[in-house]
């Protein structure tokens, strides 16, 4: 099951133009890190930056893409893929889900619900 942060507040994380389509950006949130992905002009996703496989803060540097239409992020270390919508692991076997966050762009700025 995916773990969606619901009770947060929207926080501005930077100008929309700093987010390149199809690439990720890592956002510092206190001691925690969130990976924000822009997959089209106005299509945004955000997950934890920690890859549950080897517990490294690297997901924002992975490749985005899709499997049968489901948007996904692939970890740069060992190519584990996760759904950007639900955070679920898309491979076989046991793997923790990613925490996913709400993210949006308004008036040239990007907001993340933390």
């Amino acid at each position: 099951m995916s773990d969606i942060v619901e009770n947060g507040t929207w926080q501005e994380i930077g100008p929309t133009d700093d987010f390149v389509v199809d690439l990720g950006v890592c956002v510092q949130n206190g001691d925690d890190q969130v990976a924000v992905f822009r997959l089209a002009e106005d299509e945004w996703y955000a997950t934890q930056n920690l890859c549950p496989h080897q517990k490294q803060m690297v997901l924002s540097r992975g490749l985005t893409g899709d499997v049968k239409g489901e948007p996904k992020i692939t970890c740069p270390l060992h190519k584990r893929s996760f759904s950007l919508r639900s955070g679920e692991f898309l491979g076989e076997g046991e793997m923790d889900c990613l925490k996913v966050y709400e993210v949006k762009s308004e008036a040239g700025k990007v907001f993340l619900k933390l």
């Binding site: 199809d22 490749l63 893409g65 899709d66 499997v67 948007p71 996904k72 692939t74």
Partner: peptide, 10 residues
Amino acid sequence: GGRGCEICKP
């Protein structure tokens, strides 16, 4: 169609 993936992009 689609967005590509970690295989076709590189």
